[in-house]
Amino acid sequence: MSGTELVRVAVDAERCIGGGQCEMLEPEVFLVDDDEAISSVVGSGALPRPRADVVVHRCPGAAVSIVEPQRPSE
């Protein structure tokens, strides 16, 4: 969508409880590790801001944050 700002997301490994909400919502961006059960960002970690906001809102450990705005998409 035009004008949708892209932001970069990050996971705080200390706070992550491996609940998997992020992986459910954005499987292209988050993956929970099998052994440690800690989520991490795969790839660039870029998401449109409204979708990033949903992940932040739904993360049960308050471990996902928006680290910086990226360039606006065309």
């Binding site: 491996g18 998997g20 992986e23 993956l31 929970v32 059960a37």
Partner: peptide, 17 residues
């Protein structure tokens, strides 16, 4: 304690697994 214990089993219950 909760985080440590949960991570013991949470890997088996992720969407992918």
């Amino acid at each position: 304690d909760h985080t440590r214990l949960r991570r013991m089993v949470a890997g088996a219950f992720t969407p992918k697994n």
